Computed example of a mutant assay.
Amino acid sequence: MTKLHDFTADTISGSQDVFDRLAGQVVLIVNTASECGYTPQYDGLEKLYADYKDRGFTVLGFPCNQFGEQEPGEGQEIQEFCRTQYGVEFPIYKKTDVNGLHTHPVWEWLKSEKPGPNGAQIDWNFTKFLVDQSGTVVARYEPATTPDELREPIEELLEG
């Protein structure tokens, strides 16, 4: 059975992150964009990360330009935006396709584990997947779900 810990992804700075380092952590994976109506969720995501990182929680942000071309930037530009506008310290990855022919393998897996309202598709930016300490997807949240609404399920997983 595939787990989150079986995957890797390229960080925004170009290094490869091996997700087996996340074993034992609760992880929230989000497809993000800098010019979306949901972009202010970066603030809430960073607050979740700051509040829970010392308890074994992280957020993984995957910028995506597939929805209304709302992530036109690249690499350093995206990272700079996230840090200066929202104080983002959680890991940000290389711009990623979450649908279609070039979908990143971790996103293929996420969608197969927890299909959404339209099946195994991501419908918009800021779709979120919550993964438990064993690397299993436990929930999918659509873009309108705010980071603050995820506090209870995150705390439940952290308390075990």
Rank of each mutant, 00 (worst) to 15 (best):
L45M: 14
V98L: 01
Q133G: 10
E80N: 14
L110K: 04
T8H: 02
S134A: 15
C64N: 00
T11K: 10
F67N: 10
G87W: 08
K47Y: 04
D51P: 05
Y93H: 09
E77I: 09
S134Q: 15
G14P: 05
W124V: 05
W109R: 12
T84F: 14
R21P: 00
K53A: 09
G37E: 07
K95V: 06
T96Q: 00
L150D: 07
A144Q: 14
T2D: 08
D43W: 03
D51Q: 15
L60H: 00
F19S: 00
W124I: 04
S134E: 15
Q133L: 04
K128T: 13
W124H: 02
P40F: 07
V27L: 05
G73L: 03
Q25W: 09
F62A: 01
T84M: 13
I92D: 01
G37A: 12
G56Y: 02
G56V: 10
K53I: 06
T145F: 11
G44W: 12
N65Y: 03
E113H: 09
G44N: 09
L22V: 06
K128Q: 11
W107K: 08
E74K: 13
G24C: 01
I78R: 05
Y42D: 05
T127R: 07
S34V: 12
V59H: 03
I29N: 01
Q121P: 01
E159F: 03
T84I: 15
T84D: 05
D43M: 08
E89H: 11
D123T: 15
K47L: 12
Q133S: 15
D148P: 04
G119W: 05
P115H: 13
E142V: 12
S15C: 00
G61C: 11
N65M: 06
G73W: 02
G75T: 11
D6W: 08
F62V: 02
T136W: 01
A33N: 03
L158Y: 04
G73D: 02
Y141T: 13
G160P: 06
D20L: 01
D10V: 13
A33F: 07
K111F: 06
E77F: 06
N118A: 14
G119Y: 05
L130F: 12
S15P: 00
E142T: 11
G119P: 05
Q41L: 11
N118H: 13
